[in-house]
Nucleic acid binder design. Structure first.
Lengths: 192, 192
DNA sequence: TGTACATCAGTGAACGCGCGTTCACTGATGTAC
DNA sequence: TGTACATCAGTGAACGCGCGTTCACTGATGTAC
C-alpha cells in the first residue's frame, strides 16, 4: 500500500498524541505499544517505522503533554479579567476537572516519580520540556526580574503538582476536593 | 526445617523493610519479588507464606516508609533549637541528602503517581498512612486549631513532595540544588 | 523414655501471561526506461 | 504511452524475556501416645 505524501507524518502525530494521553493515565509501564496502536486502528509492528523504541516515544509524549497543558493554562490566564491572571492560572491547575482528567493533565503530576527513576537516560528531554513550560508561564507571576519570575514559577508548579498528585491518591472525594480548595488559597497567597 | 517461634515474624519484618526501600527506588513495577527475596537470602516461593500478593506487600511497605520518614523528621525537629523546629523540618525534608536517597525517602515523592493510578484498590491504606503521617508532624506547624495545623501540614508536605520529585527529575545537579534551596525559603516563608 | 506423626517456613521448578522488539511479507503508487 | 521495478507504511506471526503466582517437596522440631 502506498500512502499520500503527508501520511507518515500524520500517523506519527497521532501516535504521539495518543501516547501522551495513555502514558499519563496508565504510566510508562502500564501503557502497552500494542494497545496504543490498536486504538489508532493500526498494528504494533508498524510502530517501529516511526520510533526506535518505546523510550523515545515516552520522551516525545512528555514534551507534547507539557505543550498541551501550557496552552490551556495560558488561555485560561489570558481570558481572566486584568489582575486576576495568576489566580486563574492557579484555579485552573488546581481545579476538580484537572484533578479528574489525568490523561490530559499535567505530566509532572502524572509521571514525576517514573521520570525521576529513569532519569539516567536521554532525560534531559524532560528537563528541557519543563523549562520551556516554565518560561511560557513565568510572565503571569510577580517578580522584579525574569529570573525571579521563573524561579517562582518553578516553585509554584512543582508544588501544585505534588498537591494535585496527592489529591488524586485520596480515596475519599471530599478529602480530595478540600485539599484542592486549600491549595488554591495557599498557593495564591504564597506566590504573590 | 523447623524455625524458632519468633522466626516467621522476623522474616516478615525483613521483607517489609526491604520492600519499603525497593519499591521507593524502583517503583511498584520495577521491584521484583524474586530480587527482593534474593537480597534477604531467601527464594521467591516462600514469599507467599507471608503475603497474599505483591499488592498487599506494596500497601504495607508504603505504611512502613511513611513511619520511617516521620520518625526521622520528628527527630530533626525535636533536636532543633526552640523556635526553629519548623525550619528544621523543612530543611531536612528538602535537603540534598533526602533528594539523593530515594530508597529511604518520602514515599509520596517516590510513588505518588503510581499510587494515584492504582487507587481503585485497597488503597485507602495510603490515605490512612498519609493521614497518620500528617498528624505526627502537625504539631510543628503554626495554626489556631489542630484542624488548621493539619491542613497546613498537608499543604506543606504535598507541595514539598512535588518539588522534591521535580528536583530528582532534573538532570543538571546545579538546577537540582537550586530548586531545593529556593524551595526551603519558599515553604518556610509560605507556611508561617 | 521412645516412637510415629503433624507442622509449616522455606525451596526451586514450572506455568502462564504480557509485552517490547524483530522480521518476512504485502501491495498501491511513483519512477526509470 | 506502456511496462518493469523500487519504495516503504503497515501487517501479523514469532521470539525472548521478566515476572507474579502455584505447587509438590523438604526436613527439623514439637506433640501425641
Amino acid at each position: 500500500v502506498r500512502y499520500p505524501a503527508e501520511h507518515k507524518q500524520q500517523t506519527r502525530e497521532r501516535i504521539v498524541a495518543a501516547a501522551a494521553r495513555r502514558f499519563r493515565s496508565r504510566g510508562r509501564d502500564g501503557a502497552a505499544i500494542a494497545d496504543l496502536m490498536r486504538d489508532l486502528r493500526l498494528t504494533h509492528g508498524g510502530f517501529y517505522r516511526h520510533f526506535d523504541s518505546k523510550e523515545d516515544l515516552f520522551a516525545e509524549a512528555i514534551g507534547r503533554a507539557f505543550e498541551q497543558v501550557a496552552d490551556r493554562l495560558v488561555a485560561a490566564a489570558e481570558k481572566a479579567p486584568p489582575g486576576d491572571e495568576l489566580k486563574a492560572l492557579i484555579d485552573t491547575y488546581l481545579s476538580a476537572q484537572h484533578c479528574a482528567d489525568v490523561a490530559n493533565g499535567c505530566p509532572v503530576a502524572a509521571l514525576v516519580s517514573e521520570i525521576a527513576r529513569h532519569q539516567d537516560g536521554p532525560y534531559s528531554a524532560f528537563q528541557q520540556a519543563a523549562r520551556r513550560h516554565i518560561e511560557k508561564l513565568a510572565r503571569f507571576l510577580p517578580g522584579a526580574t525574569p529570573q525571579e519570575r521563573k524561579r517562582k514559577t518553578a516553585m509554584l508548579f512543582s508544588g501544585m503538582a505534588g498537591t494535585l498528585g496527592m489529591a488524586r491518591a485520596m480515596t475519599d472525594p471530599r478529602r480530595r476536593l478540600r485539599l484542592l480548595e486549600d491549595a488554591r488559597k495557599f498557593y495564591l497567597n504564597a506566590v504573590r
